[in-house]
Amino acid sequence: MRTKKSFSAKKKGILIAAACVLALAVGSGIYFGVTKGGITLAPAVRSYVININNAEEVAGFVDYVFVGRVEKQMDARYEDVFERESEDGEKTLVGAPYTLYEVTVLENLKGNLKVNEPIRIEKEGGISMDGKFLSVAEGDSLPEEGSLFVFAVSAGADGSLLANHNYKLMKTKLTEKAIGKMQPEQLQKAMQAELEEAEAQADYKRFAEACKNEVPFARERYTASAEWLEAATQ
């Protein structure tokens, strides 16, 4: 037991030392973690008006909660662009990125968005203007193409949708290649099976429950242009 303990303490010591060496190597200025592909993670910190770890509060704040499959990630746009000069005189353009996604709604948990056809949603975060950083809020992540998520989104005054939070459920098995080999009935069955698998995930259950027990939040509300208009379907 004793040797084991001393070994783990040692491991810890090595880790701390390694972390310190890394911090030293990067210097005493700005340091972020590094992600794959040579892009550095630049995690913004936010102060929220709700507890974002509480699904009931999230469900109450947003306008729509749904299960969606991410079809396509598009380019980012940038707000509040300004020129930043580093201490060595290097100038770069900086702005808050918003990335656009095409998402198919598979099941509505709150609200009533069009299902089974791609709609567009935006998410604050994305690649920085100089292409060097991935800007995403701490504790948050960007949706990935080809995966199913629970999305919590709000509608803007212009009817556009902004994803506040997204929780990954699973990767889709229904890739274009897989679908290409399927008969229509087979595809129907496979889609049903996939949705059932998504519904078995913890985050799905958490939000399905939360949408029945929302903590109300009073603010101005708008309707999404992608909202399902019952009258139009009759």
């Binding site: 936010r46 008006v49 509040d80 604050e124 800007s135 809020a137 509608a155 005054a157 101005e220």
Partner: peptide, 21 residues
Amino acid sequence: RISDVSELGESWLGETSPLGY
């Protein structure tokens, strides 16, 4: 750089980015 945005659908009051804003 400190600036204002108007994001009715976001639940945050303020955010600070390591990119300098």
